[in-house]
């Protein structure tokens, strides 16, 4: 079973590598078969990764998202799913490439770690844990997509490349990604708050992870309002998306790995 898991993980990794390579070629030569092949590779990688996650879920008896290996594997799956969502909805081809780069980066890091499934400790044995973590990473994935769209918006605005989608479309996807990310992250905080109450006796923890998660929510909540203010539309919104992603990165990786918190990843 372990060989099968390894095969699926490596298969998905190489499919994503091929997809990124083909998208880069598409940027250079603008041939439709290139992006079609790239998209097919993303689909293949996503299917293999989904199979791998399902297999690990069945073996473990719970959705294994309890340590750095598992969260990275799951986060990369969420990123690929977000990419597919945007691609299928807006046909932006290689424009969401940054998200695939993030997915690959996480995957490359996954390959160096121990894939053993840890025993589920009683504190994590609750559906609230699964709901909290899945909505959290789904939200993070949309924030990553918003970051990607924000960067592309600025590049398009200053360079004006025909290779990239129009500003209007980039702005639209950016706003949609922030909105969906905020909705999912709100659900994450709700499930997390209820779980914290039954596990610790309070629904808001002043631990640095709790504080920063609230800040991420507050920041993106502010962004959901900022899109209605003319001054913040377009460029301002793109800059905010980039700043928001810095908050997300620190909340997930920075606090989880570098600092001591009640959400340890290592």
């Amino acid at each position: 079973m372990s060989e099968l898991q390894h095969g699926l993980i490596y298969g998905a990794f190489f499919a994503y590598v091929a997809a990124v390579f083909l998208y880069l070629c598409h940027f250079r030569w603008r041939l439709s078969w290139l992006w079609r092949s790239a998209f097919a590779m993303v689909l293949l990688g996503f299917a293999l990764q989904t199979l791998c996650l399902a297999l690990r879920w069945i073996i473990a008896g719970y959705l294994p998202i309890t340590n750095l290996f598992n969260t990275q594997l799951f986060f990369s799956w969420c990123l690929a799913a977000t990419y597919l969502y945007v691609e299928l909805r807006y046909r932006i081809h290689g424009a969401g490439l940054f998200v695939m780069f993030c997915c690959l980066l996480l995957f490359a890091s996954v390959l160096t770690r121990d894939p053993a499934i840890p025993v589920l400790i009683p504190a994590l044995d609750t559906p609230l844990f699964t709901l909290h973590v899945t909505t959290s990473f789904a939200g993070y994935a949309f924030f990553t997509m918003a970051f990607s769209m924000g960067v592309l918006y600025l590049v398009q605005r200053w360079v004006g490349s025909s290779l990239l989608p129009e500003l209007k479309l980039l702005r639209k996807i950016n706003e949609e990604a922030v909105f969906l990310g905020f909705c999912l992250f709100t659900l994450c905080l709700i499930f997390g708050g209820i779980w914290a109450y039954v596990a610790w006796g309070y629904y808001f923890s002043w631990n640095i992870k709790g504080v920063w998660s609230s800040l991420v929510w507050l920041f993106y909540g502010g962004m959901c309002h900022a899109k209605f203010v003319r001054r913040w539309q377009g460029t301002g919104y793109a800059i905010l998306s980039i700043a928001g992603f810095a908050l997300v990165l620190f909340t997930y990786i920075g606090i989880g790995v570098l600092l001591s918190s009640n959400h340890p990843l290592t």
Partner: peptide, 13 residues
């Protein structure tokens, strides 16, 4: 709302 959310975020960060 934006000003309050931004100020709270910046101060707490």
């Amino acid at each position: 709302a934006i000003v309050l959310a931004s100020c709270a975020t910046l101060i707490a960060v």
